[in-house]
Design a protein around this nucleic acid. Sequence first.
RNA 1: GGGCGGGUAGCUCAGUUGGGAGAGCACCGGCCUUACAAGCCGGGGGUCACAGGUUCAAGCCCUGUUCCGCCUACCA
Length: 891
Amino acid sequence: MSSTDLLDKAYEPYDVEKRWYDFWEKEGLFAATEKSEQKGYSIVIPPPNVTGVLHMGHALNNTLQDILCRYRRLRGDNVLWMPGTDHAGIATQNVVEKKLASEGNDRHQLGREKFIETVWKWRKEYGGQIIHQLKRLGASCDWNRERFTMDEGLSRAVRKVFVQLYNEGLIYRGNYIINWCHRCHTALADLEVEHEEIDGNLYHIRYPFADGSGEIIVATTRPETMLGDTAVAINPDDERYSNIGATEVILPLMNKKIPIIKDKYVDMSFGTGGLKVTPAHDPNDFEIGTRHNLPAVKVIGDDGLMTDEAGEFKGLDRFECREIVVDKLRKEGLLEKIEPHKHNVGHCYRCKTIIEPNLSKQWFVSAKPLAEKAMDAVRNNETKIIPETWNKTYFEWMNNIRDWCISRQIWWGHQIPAWTCETCQKVIVATNTPETCPDCGGKNLIQETDVLDTWFSSALWPFSTMGWPDETPLLKTFYPTSVLITGFDILFFWVARMMMMGIHFMGDIPFKDVYVHALVRDEHGKKMSKSTGNVIDPLSVIEEYGTDAFRFTLAAFAAQGRDIKMSEKRVEGYRHFVNKLWNAARFALMHIPNSNFEFQVSSFKPLSLPDRWILSRLGKATETVAENLDTYKFNDAAGAVYQFVWHEFCDWYLEAIKPVLYGNEGQEKKDATTRVLWRVLRDTLVLLHPFMPFVTEEIWHKLPGTEGSVMKAVFPSDTPDAADVAYNAEAESEMELVIGIITGIRNIRGEMNISPSLALEVLVQSQDKKIRETIQQHQDIITHLARLSSFSVEQPGERPKASATAITEGATIFLPLEGIIDFAKETERLEKEIDKVTKELTGASKKLSNEDFLAKAPESVVEKVREKHETLAEKRQKLQLNLDKIKEIKK
RNA sequence: GGGCGGGUAGCUCAGUUGGGAGAGCACCGGCCUUACAAGCCGGGGGUCACAGGUUCAAGCCCUGUUCCGCCUACCA
């Protein structure tokens, strides 16, 4: 590509993105090396649901991962970003069932085997959607290694884990109260229940004593469960009931005698202090029932309809039954009253159906022993959670962890590797399908029909994806992973469980760092949801503004510990930034020769002030970007590079070197500056690449003197010629002086409304010889950037009359403009400036006259304030002088 | 009920051992200056939620109040 081929005037992302993504994949630039001398760096992707489509959360999550992976590659690491999806048991089954229903079919008609076949077919056809969307985002995953939680390898890991935990006594099976979703027809883990406050009623029901000596009133929010009551409980300390003789009540509607029991659990201050006990339909009642050996009567079936045990109510829907029960109680005069009552009701996290606590035989993981070590790892800093504030949440949950119900009554998932011998009822748990019963030799072995919770398999993700249970080179190179990037919403679901499983099975933590990022909300801070209609589709944003602008927006707003409020307007702003870079490159390419070009900056010395300055600033920007990416401060990293590119490189450097590039200063100077320009652009592209991979790659290929992909570039601070961009104190302070003078002149121009096209004559006075020399030396830059017709520097002496003035540190600027300046305006401007300075000056004086401050503040602070006071006083004095002068002339 | 986070410019937010209140957008004024009007130059704007306290010094540390958001939980 020759430099005479100008870039288009505006950056058009669409074609560029497609082209380079294909190129990267084709060149194998995303591939990790199994064995390498390089430092290993690995991230496993939080596997999106195979049913999923890319939303803002995914976009943020994966953009951050991609930034880190691309950055680490530039730093020379051997990077593995492991991609994949999870099988999302309930969600996927729901989707496929819906599809079947639309075809007038259902899974029971198909049968289990056929149904699972259908799901696989669906997965093949539609399951890759989100992977394609991740590619649009620029995700540099090692796609050849893509995994799926239902893959053969991962399934093997699941079986092995299940069997081992069972043998260790950490998995057990039993009848317990679990959360039951009638719509999904399965048990759910406690975590999968979403609590929501709803306006319900508190029903007060009279339970007559069996001996006719009176009654006790109990309160309930779910009257239909009374049909399954097996006791009424009171607190043993409750004086209201200390004198009752009755030991039993008659359960209304059922006409059944049930005992009155005493249990400390009962809260005396709630209602009447009488509690109905339904062990089959309430977790607390279940525990009370266990303590008192009460029978558990299941009146609500797994289908949501009342069971045989519900007597005359049999077959009614649970909510319908509630109304009828209440109605009947009222008629029989057993309903004391109904009070409105707000309470929390559990809903299924997949389908929002109201959850019923239900007695059921399920499989559980005994979590406490696993949680202990998972807590230790964080306590000992083996795994660091960032930001730290999430430690508390992590410990809070781990400390109160309860056993994890892992069986699901659905078909799509890992079928539990347990068999029951029909002959002797022995339960066999094994990785391979057993042929005969080891106890009785029976051949009729029936496999457990339940499948495992999807999170059970995702808990193994960091090592199952790398080939475990085999000892693979991949595991050796990349486990433990370097960092996990995730949203806090799955801290418990996933992160905590990976910690438990990783430590238990690998004997080592699954990740060294866990970076917890925020949620993406809409521009008003509301959670995005389909029902609210405030969802912004990342893909439409990408279509409209380009991937680079979108990614940069996400990074720029990814401040630790705060949610991101996303609006398209923000993205638009960063599209301007992409375009700015594009045009800066366009400008640079107009001046960088494309042949016989020696790119070493160091061979051209001495360099001009702008050259030395921009190299110093580039070094600073490089350092800042690295520091902030190393500590997951994505917004600060993005901010630093943005500031550098726009306000230092474009606003000052490119403007300052124009005369040189136009050849006004001779070929030698031009050659030197061109090298610096090239160098800064090259390094800038590398710095920006992790954030904006596409536009940087596009420019990289247009820039002479670069080879291959920018992905293969070396991070600026790691290059052999990194010394060129070291901090240069002299250049920075000289440039500050020059910038100060220019800004002073521009300020007058702006405030006085002097036409930009009018070239001005400017005189600068300074007492400091060094300052005078520096200014003199760089007067061409000042003349150019401030648009001057003449410029001179001298010692303080005669003040030009009729001039506007500005004060910078160490120098006074005079803009003699007889006939041009407006005296009234200049007076006003100076007065305003004096006001400002006076205010600051007063603050400093106050401090300096405070003896305590002088005595107790550190010397360096006092000195700083003294200096400040001195400069301000001087500035004020000069301003005052100028004001007096103006007023004098005005007269 | 328990826990966490937040209240800083009109808006969205930075502000990391306590010592100069900042950015982006929006707004106002001036510019088509041959990279970019998706741009350039200049400018205005804040009792850092409120009340106390510690300190020479508080946006930052402590206490209390208040408002908002989230997580978590078995008061029927």
